[in-house]
């Protein structure tokens, strides 16, 4: 069996598992939904962090923007948003019937992606000119500022947060959100797999390896960087939209712009799995999420200590990540062989 076979086998198993999970593990469906979303978080972080070398502490901004955008659109289609948030979700007059709820989602999730992407364009044009740690720290500042700003904005509930629309009882939202999460993860994976196979994939790798050289060779580096961040933001925004509905309540600092947890988790998952690889974030997210679900509740009060320790351990002792380690250990089995590369090039030549 060669690498390509493994690759397709893994995809087939995951796809099968994804589709069948509601029948196999009905009790754990919401956990599985979050797992798929976590995979999206790790994959999109790795697009800029791993493939392009731009390590962001602030991708959680797009997650939060998407979360608020989806909820706001879902509500605003049928009720005045200000009145809804003022009632803090407690008002009995804000009822959504099945068709209203589904229409809201159908409009809200794409809106979440688009708004997050627009945010990325605006922010990216300003700060993607910065290099290395200046970029990283600027994004850290943005993530916290976003949370603080959201806590002060009355229209979206300010510091007391926002309740997402309550679905009608007749609707099985657990399964609905599960399939939405699964579909989003699948879409993100397939899209990125394709993107990395294009010349654009090479172009962002070039930025990672030596941005000055890429610039000197005439690449449109700024444009390429902004596009990568925008793509990441689009998928992240939709993930945020689903996540908000799953959580049923959006707190500006503890849920939407939760830089200290979700924002760090996505970095950690990508590094744990292997930065700059397609499968790394998927594996890293799965391993991390399972560990988190198993142990997190026992660590009450010590969760951040554990997280901090985990960060230090991974970053200091295991920076290459699981896939990176496998590639080092068995290069011919997990890395592309010269013969495979030759064949791929030959196909292009024909």
């Amino acid at each position: 069996m060669n690498r390509t076979t493994y690759h397709y086998l893994a995809i087939a198993v995951l796809a099968l598992l994804g589709v069948a999970a509601p029948y196999l593990f009905p009790a754990y469906l919401s956990q599985f939904s979050k797992l798929w979303l976590f995979i999206v978080l790790a994959l999109t972080w790795d697009l800029t962090g791993g493939q392009m070398g731009y390590n962001s502490f602030g991708n959680v901004v797009f997650f939060g923007v998407g979360m608020y955008a989806a909820a706001a659109v879902q509500v605003a289609l049928y009720y005045p948003l200000a009145a809804y948030t003022a009632a803090k979700g407690g008002g009995t007059e804000f009822i959504f019937n099945t068709s209203q709820f589904l229409t809201g989602l159908a409009a809200g999730l794409p809106a979440a992606g688009v708004l997050a992407a627009l945010t990325a364009v605006a922010l990216g044009l300003i700060i993607l000119g910065m290099r290395g740690h200046y970029f990283a720290i600027a994004t850290l500042g943005l993530a916290i500022a976003a949370g603080e700003l959201a806590s002060g904005w009355d229209l979206i509930g300010a510091g007391s947060g926002m309740v997402t629309p309550t679905p009608p009882d007749s609707l099985d939202t657990t399964t609905l959100f599960y399939y939405l999460s699964f579909a989003l993860a699948a879409l993100t994976f397939v899209f990125l797999a394709w993107l990395y196979s294009t010349r654009y994939g090479l172009a962002i790798n070039a930025i990672r390896d030596d941005e000055d050289k890429a610039e000197a060779m005439g690449h449109h580096t700024i444009r390429n960087k902004v596009i990568a961040w925008t793509i990441a933001a689009f998928f992240l925004g939709m993930a945020g939209g689903i996540f908000g509905n799953l959580s049923k309540f959006i707190d500006p600092i503890d849920v939407a712009f939760n830089g200290a947890e979700i924002g760090v988790w996505m970095i950690l998952m990508a590094i744990l799995g292997g930065k700059g690889t397609l499968w790394g974030p998927v594996i890293g997210a799965s391993v991390f999420y399972v560990m988190k679900e198993l142990f997190w509740t026992y660590l009450l009060g010590w969760q951040r200590v554990a997280l901090g320790l985990l960060i230090i351990l991974i970053v200091v002792f295991f920076p290459q990540g699981i896939v990176g380690w496998l590639k080092e250990r068995w290069p011919s089995r997990f890395g592309p062989t010269a013969a495979e590369m030759e064949a791929a090039d030959a196909k292009g030549e024909a």
Binding site: S197, T198, R199, L202, A203, A206, G218, I227, E349
Partner: peptide, 18 residues
């Protein structure tokens, strides 16, 4: 990745790398 993309726009980057 050093091939010239001077005349064509972003779309040319979306072709396969081979």
């Amino acid at each position: 990745i050093s091939l010239p993309d001077r005349s064509s726009g972003f779309a040319s980057l979306l072709r396969s790398r081979h």
